[in-house]
Design a protein around this nucleic acid. Structure first.
Lengths: 229, 229
DNA sequence: TACTATACGGAGGCTGCCTCCGGTTTGTCA
DNA sequence: TGACAAACCGGAGGCAGCCTCCGTATAGTA
């Protein structure tokens, strides 16, 4: 035993927690100003509001983590993140007891952003909107691979936290999926849970040639399209 | 050179596996006997033969690593592996300068085994043999997920080593693929490189229900089958 | 048997993880 | 406005894993 303690304990109890909703992933150079616009932010269970300085540091850490994870991958040193954020390591750990918790905080923001972007896809015809959704998800997850790799593997865990995130994703995707199925253009022996798995798997592919991932996705989509038999 | 190694930092922390993998599928408890059957084994560039004690320790380390990676995941402590093998950490590092090198050594044995097992699939009809190959690969990679996760991501790297492994895999798979394409049952706008990527992606999926991975593979296979338009 | 190239193994330096606690700051109430 | 307590900050310190270096042991040869 001994070994990996970190694996367990996906704390996440905070539920809620949250992340930043601001803009492009790499902007975030000036954290406090833009990241600040978060409301439902990880209150203590009691519901007491965060102190101003704590909030400030929380945001700085999330911003620094987003950059670091993007640059170095999920294994970025937490101490480096703390340095980057200009806070002590103790501060980082108070807000995020585990690396997982920090990943989640970053993830929430990214996911929210993604989900809200998919709404407009309903303007397209059923099959086209489903295809667009798939490409969007694959493209997004592939870009954020460092995060996605780690996090997609937890999508089925029973942490309450992830259920929330998952439901965000389902809320965004399921209408598009159902519409395609009802229109008879998408096979009906599958569901969004399965499709998100497939998409996650494809997103993890390391491209050996530009566009390869997209092509593989197209093949998979052919498999999903209802065969007019 | 200068610090070439230091740069690595593969640490592989992210992995975490969380796997708690099943039991060791097959023995490997008596290392020297079976693992020894790998011949073209990391000779020094010069080609000089390994000393007997060195060979013995080499085999012990590979066997211990195979077990440890299966149990703990790719992030298993190298020092624990050395202890398990009953050798000093220095010995481990002499044979395997990086964690990656050790993973590769384990990988070679596993892959050889797999490739030789696929030959008999040619007895089946074209499409069926292709389907069987796909299922075999997915099943295999999924079982060895700890390894596969790490290693499939390097399949496109230019390490000479991986070219060799890759060619083993291609030698096993390409005949089956070509036959299916020539028989007109498999779409022709793809190749084995791409298919292996797809399969690798699907293998990485964490099942949320038994058989889910297989079902997803079937969907993808539908996409690969030539549509009789 | 004697000798040397080769291999062994663990001490030690370094980095990262995480906890703990004394000092500092914020927000509130009189 | 001033004072106080709760909340927060930050880094020292203990622990574990990574990797290197080098004195010692051994296999293989003459």
């Amino acid at each position: 035993m001994s070994t990996t303690d970190a694996t367990t304990k996906s704390n996440a109890e905070g539920a809620e927690s949250a992340g930043s909703v601001e803009g492009a992933e790499d902007a975030a150079t000036e954290p406090s100003s833009q990241v600040a616009s978060i409301d439902q932010q990880e209150p203590e269970a009691g519901g007491r509001a965060m102190r101003a300085d704590a909030k400030r540091n929380y945001d700085k850490v999330v911003a620094a983590a987003r950059e670091a994870f993007a640059e170095t991958g999920v294994s970025a040193s937490l101490e480096a993140i703390a340095r980057r954020a200009g806070v002590g390591i103790g501060t980082l750990y108070r807000h995020f007891p585990t690396r997982q918790a920090l990943l989640e905080a970053v993830y929430v923001g990214e996911l929210r952003q993604l989900c809200s972007a998919t709404e407009q896809l309903l303007a397209l015809p059923p099959w086209e909107s489903f295809v667009a959704l798939s490409h969007t998800l694959v493209g997004y997850l592939a870009t954020k691979k460092a995060l996605a790799h780690e996090l997609m593997n937890y999508v089925d865990r029973d942490a309450a936290f992830f259920r929330t995130c998952r439901s965000d994703l389902f809320l965004a995707g399921e209408p598009i999926l159902s519409r395609a199925q009802e229109a008879g253009v998408l096979r009906t022996d599958t569901d969004f849970a399965e499709i998100i798995q497939l998409i996650g798997g494809i997103a993890k592919i390391e491209e050996t040639a530009p566009g390869q991932r997209e092509h593989i996705l197209d093949i998979a989509l052919d498999g999903l399209r209802r065969q007019p038999s």
